[in-house]
């Protein structure tokens, strides 16, 4: 009960925080937060795979890009489309998930990662070279934000922020319902031992397939928001930087944690903002962030610091230098990373 109450309080605090931001932040920083929320949704799609199936994907941008291109292409053919364009974008992402899913979920750990990487690069290559439809490396500029509700314009930064924040909260709520449902619990079971779940009579393949498609849908939501945010889908939407940032956000926030992706995304977006004032070699920073996260915070920045803090306060000074204990089986949301050579 207390857990439930705590997470409810957390959601309310999040709601308050998100609604206060437009009042205290300048338009510029509000724009950054909007971008961070959009990327956080993308990271949540990676989180669904990593935290609940133990599959690390560096190709989530595939769904992201497919959705944003679908919105732009459809809007060009049907002038003034609003809800229908969004629906087309999401359907395209789901379709991509349905097509890639059967291939991708045949594989596990590093092979899954590599397959997703390859998918994303195929789409990148297609959008780059299929100029007549995708506009090549120019992308498809000039995508205007539609009036979803007549009379309410999304053109201003504040109104678009509100729209993105509402969608974000809806996604968070749906994600929470999804992973705490019996379905989500089966996914966790599959993550910990798929042979055991198979022995219990669950159709592991189908569960994985549905979860994969759901993650494609979430990635698609992020892609649609992104397309309207910048108004110009381009091949960079499929870039490795996008996918790998999303994955890093998940790891930083702690795989499986509901709001980990938001924390990771805020960290990455604001660090990138800070770094871009100093140097334009952002990739080095991203690479170092990857290396440091993996070496020092494999359970996520927040998880590791929180654990360190608990250790320190519960054990007192005499044991402060003792090494951290192994995580117990119950809270092993990152158990996926320690699969040994035997499998």
């Amino acid at each position: 009960m207390s857990h439930k109450a705590r997470s409810l309080a957390f959601l309310i605090a999040l709601l308050c925080g998100l609604s206060v931001l437009p009042l205290i932040l300048s338009t510029y920083y509000l724009g950054l937060v909007t971008g961070a929320l959009i990327l956080a949704i993308l990271a949540m799609s990676a989180n669904l795979l990593l935290g609940y199936l133990g599959l690390a994907s560096v190709g989530q941008a595939a769904f992201f890009g497919v959705a944003s291109y679908a919105v732009a292409i459809y809007t060009r053919s049907a002038e003034g489309a609003a809800w229908s364009a969004i629906a087309v974008g999401l359907l395209a992402a789901v379709a991509a998930g349905l097509v890639f899913g059967p291939l991708a979920i045949r594989t596990r750990d590093i092979f899954f990662l590599v397959i997703m990487l390859a998918f994303c690069q195929i789409l990148y290559g297609v959008t780059y070279s299929w100029r007549s439809v995708t506009g090549g490396d120019d992308g498809l500029p000039g995508l205007a934000r539609p009036d979803l509700i007549p009379g309410v314009s999304l053109d201003g930064p504040v109104s678009y922020y509100v729209f993105v924040a509402v969608v974000f909260l809806l996604v968070v709520g749906a994600f929470r319902l999804f992973v705490n449902s019996p379905f989500g619990l089966v996914l966790k079971g599959i993550r910990d031992s798929d042979s055991r779940m198979r022995a219990l009579g669950y159709n592991v393949w189908l569960y994985k397939y549905i979860a994969f498609t759901a993650s494609a849908l979430i990635g698609g939501i992020s892609g649609v928001l992104h397309a309207y945010y910048y108004g110009c889908p381009n091949p960079a939407d499929f870039s490795l930087i996008h996918s790998s940032s999303a994955l890093l956000m998940v790891i930083l926030g702690g795989p499986g944690a509901l709001l980990g992706p938001l924390a990771g995304s805020l960290i990455i977006v604001f660090v990138r903002e800070f770094v871009s004032n100093v140097t334009d070699r952002w990739l080095i920073v991203l690479g170092f962030a990857y290396v440091c996260t993996v070496l020092f915070f494999p359970d996520g920045l927040i998880g590791t610091i929180g654990r360190w803090w608990r250790e320190k306060s519960s054990r007192g000074r005499s044991h402060a230098t003792a090494p951290l204990p192994e995580r117990s089986q119950e809270e092993s949301s990152t158990e996926f990373v320690s699969a040994g050579k035997s499998n």
Partner: peptide
């Protein structure tokens, strides 16, 4: 100096080399 520190944790190792790819490419 890097991979041996996280010996046996396959996925972390892959992610580590992934980060190194970004660093080396930009360098």
């Amino acid at each position: 100096f890097l991979l041996q520190r996280i010996y046996g944790r396959r996925l972390l190792q892959v992610l580590l080399t992934f980060g190194c790819m970004f660093i080396l490419g930009d360098l």
